[in-house]
């Protein structure tokens, strides 16, 4: 197993070189509930994600993967520790700043696609642009360009229900890409897809979503797609137990 040189044991006040780093998590903790019903989902997570990297978070159910990407994406408050995304700390932002930062900086791909069923494909893809203040007309034009890139440009007028699972996930990827976010978080993007479609989706994600200044974090159980990762963080019991860069080392 090759473990990267993470400042896992470094105290929070020890500075690290953030050049080329997309995400820094140090000592991140999160507990749901209180008292005897408390569940410690994250027990001090240390993790660095580099710019231009596809990082996968793997591990058994309940190990804290989803909690970790929720914290990274700024949709869940951590209890303790440090977590910055491109140098910005959600905890130090006001709620509206956090929302705006998410809208500009982060793209989302969900397990269940979460496409709005009553909007057309193009309108669904245009949503992040609309959130960022684009007009519907311009946003849909832009969305059509991205849909062409993911190979379903001809279906832009359809509603999601008319598409297959693989096509819907392509739309979701297009939606995550359209506003050119610097970090894309994907939650089980292939779990609802068959093997072949899952591979195609991952291939698309890898080629379209990972770039020089853009990183991808993928939470998955699906060992068939591990090969697409630049690095894989193994999680268990609310911690990152190790990081490998070769799937064979898992």
């Amino acid at each position: 197993m090759t473990t990267t040189a993470l400042p896992t044991s470094a105290p929070l006040d020890v500075p690290i070189n953030r050049e080329g780093i997309a995400v820094v998590c140090r000592g991140v903790t999160k507990t749901y509930g209180t008292g005897q019903a408390a569940v410690r989902a994250l027990r001090g997570v240390d993790l660095l994600i580099h710019s231009g990297e596809l990082m996968m978070l793997v591990g058994p159910s309940g190990c804290g993967k989803t909690s970790l990407i929720s914290v990274i994406a700024g949709v869940l408050d951590r209890d303790d520790g440090e977590c910055t995304v491109f140098g910005e700390d959600f905890a130090k932002m006001k709620p509206h700043q956090r929302t705006a930062f998410r809208g500009r900086t982060i793209g989302f791909v969900f397990q269940a696609f979460n496409l709005i069923p009553t909007l057309t494909i193009a309108e669904n893809v245009a949503v992040p642009l609309l959130i960022n203040g684009w007009s519907m007309h311009k946003a849909v034009q832009e969305a059509r360009g991205i849909l062409d890139q993911v190979g379903i440009g001809d279906r832009y007028r359809d509603i999601p229900a008319r598409l297959s699972g693989g096509q819907q996930q392509r739309v979701a990827i297009a939606r995550a890409l359209v506003h050119k976010p610097r970090l894309i978080v994907c939650d089980e993007p292939t779990s609802a897809l068959d093997h072949e479609t899952g591979e195609r989706v991952m291939d698309l994600l890898k080629t379209a979503a990972v770039g020089k200044d853009r990183s991808l974090v993928v939470v998955t159980h699906d060992n068939r797609i591990f090969q697409f990762a630049d690095r894989i963080a193994k999680m268990d019991d609310g911690r990152v137990m190790g990081i490998v860069s070769d799937v064979k080392e898992l």
Binding site: G103, R104, I106, F108, I116, N132
Partner: peptide, 10 residues
């Protein structure tokens, strides 16, 4: 919730 996560304010 998806809209909220993607950056739509309350």
């Amino acid at each position: 919730g998806t809209l909220k996560a993607m950056g739509t304010g309350d």
